[in-house]
Computed example of a mutant assay.
Amino acid sequence: MKKIITLFALTVSLFLTSESLSAQNSKLNRAEIEDKAKKEMVSLDEELDLTTEQEQFVFKQYYSYFTNYNKHLNQKIKDENYKKNKLKFDETLIAQMKKILNEEQFAKFEKLQKNKSQKEILK
């Protein structure tokens, strides 16, 4: 009986430990966020032919976007609060991009965002 209780306690502790480890792994670290922001900036630069100044601003905006997303939206449960925050972050990114890009670039940016959204829906 003592062995069964010990085995059960060990199993429960392993289960709880694995849950906390997987929760920690779902958060991105600073270098990963920076890398994602750089990739988005490079991708937009290829499509929109950004100036050096625009590249810096776009990088900062995506870095901020991914940091907020990672901090506030990196959860398994997609409740009403999740949807509200995601919409707020997306709208803020678009508003900032409208300030950074010229009209022609912003029109292309919107098309790219729509294509990206459609691809995510199809997954």
Rank of each mutant, 00 (worst) to 15 (best):
M1C: 00
I5Y: 04
I5G: 00
I5A: 10
T6S: 13
T6G: 10
L7D: 11
F8H: 05
L10A: 15
L14Y: 09
L16Q: 04
S18E: 11
S18Y: 08
S18P: 07
E19G: 06
S20R: 09
S22P: 04
A23G: 10
A23C: 08
A23L: 09
Q24G: 08
L28A: 14
L28V: 12
L28I: 08
L28Q: 14
N29V: 04
A31M: 13
I33S: 08
I33Q: 06
E34V: 05
A37K: 07
K38D: 03
E40Y: 08
E40W: 12
V42I: 09
S43F: 11
E46H: 09
L48N: 00
L48Y: 00
L48T: 00
T51R: 00
E53Y: 00
Q54M: 00
Q54W: 01
Q54I: 00
E55I: 02
F59H: 05
F59Y: 10
Q61T: 06
Y62L: 03
Y62E: 07
Y62V: 05
Y63A: 10
S64F: 03
Y65A: 01
Y65H: 10
Y65P: 01
Y65G: 01
F66D: 09
F66N: 02
N68S: 14
Y69H: 08
Y69E: 13
H72L: 15
N74I: 04
N74G: 05
Q75H: 13
K76T: 13
I77Y: 12
K78C: 01
K78S: 01
K78M: 03
D79Q: 12
D79Y: 12
D79G: 13
E80I: 02
E80H: 03
Y82P: 01
Y82F: 14
K86C: 02
K86S: 11
K86Q: 11
K86E: 10
L87F: 02
L87I: 04
L87M: 08
F89H: 08
F89Y: 15
T92A: 14
I94R: 06
I94F: 03
I94A: 06
A95K: 13
Q96V: 03
Q96N: 15
K98S: 06
K98D: 09
K99Y: 06
K99G: 09
K99W: 04
L101N: 04
E103I: 08
Q105L: 01
Q105F: 00
F106C: 03
F106D: 02
F106W: 02
F106H: 11
A107D: 12
K108T: 05
F109P: 00
K111L: 14
L112V: 04
Q113K: 06
Q113V: 02
N115F: 06
K116F: 11
S117T: 06
S117C: 02
S117Y: 11
I121C: 03
L122V: 14
L122D: 11
L122Y: 05
L122E: 15
K123P: 05
